Amino acid sequence: MIQWGNDELRSYQVGSIRAELRSLSVSDDREGMLEGTPHLHRRFRLIGIDKQLAATPHLYVHDLEALRADEKARVQEWLPRMRVRARLTSQWTPEGVAEFGETVLSVMWFQAAALDPFAHLATIVRPLDWTALARFEPFDD
C-alpha cells in the first residue's frame, strides 16, 4: 500500500512499520558496457552487489539468492536492464536507543523499464521485517 503523507512523501508499509520514501533512483544497469554477454553481465552485477553490500550495512537486495542461482543457469538470457534503488526512513528506533534519530533502509532491485518502480517497491517491502533490516542513524547536531 502506498499513501501520501502530510508532507507529500510517499509512505510504505514495511512489515509492521510505516516508512517514508526519501529517494528513489532508476539507472541503466548496462550503462558503460561496450560489449559483453548476458553471462558476463550477470557476473559483473553480482560483483557490484557484493561491494555495495559490504559498504552499506542497511542495504536489502531483492531476490539476491535468485540472482546468485541464475548466474550460471541462464547464461544466454539478459537480466532486467533497470537498477532501482530506494531509501526509506522511519521514526521507529530500536529498544534502548536514547539518541534522537531515525532508522534507515535502502532497497535495491532490478526490473524492466516499463514497470512502475513505486508500485514494485510496495510489493517488495510489505513482507520485510524493518526491525531486523533497518539501521539506526542518529541526527547530526
Rank of each mutant, 00 (worst) to 15 (best):
W4F: 14
N6H: 14
N6P: 15
N6T: 15
S11C: 15
Y12F: 15
V14Y: 04
G15P: 12
S16M: 13
S16Q: 15
I17G: 12
R18H: 14
E20S: 15
L21H: 00
L21Y: 06
R22E: 14
V26A: 11
V26P: 03
D28K: 08
D28T: 08
D28N: 14
R30W: 08
G32A: 10
G32V: 11
E35L: 07
E35Y: 02
E35I: 02
E35W: 06
E35P: 04
G36A: 07
T37N: 13
P38Q: 15
F44T: 03
R45E: 08
I47G: 11
I47V: 13
I49P: 06
I49R: 03
K51N: 15
A54G: 09
A54V: 09
T56V: 13
P57N: 11
P57L: 06
H58A: 15
D63A: 07
D63V: 04
L64N: 10
E65Y: 10
E65A: 14
R68G: 05
R68P: 02
K72D: 13
A73K: 11
A73V: 10
V75A: 12
V75C: 07
Q76S: 12
E77K: 14
E77A: 14
W78T: 07
L79V: 08
R81D: 08
R81A: 02
A86D: 00
R87M: 11
T89I: 11
Q91A: 12
W92Q: 03
P94S: 08
G96E: 03
G96A: 03
V97R: 04
G101K: 03
E102I: 07
T103F: 06
T103M: 05
V104R: 07
S106G: 05
W109I: 03
Q111K: 06
Q111F: 02
A112M: 05
A113F: 05
A114C: 05
A114H: 00
D116M: 01
P117D: 02
F118Y: 05
F118N: 04
A119E: 01
A119D: 07
A119Y: 05
A119P: 00
L121M: 04
A122L: 02
I124G: 00
V125G: 05
V125H: 01
R126W: 04
R126D: 00
D129Y: 03
T131Q: 08
A132G: 00
A132I: 05
A134P: 02
R135P: 01
F136P: 00
D140Q: 10
D141M: 09
D141R: 11
D141C: 08
D141T: 10
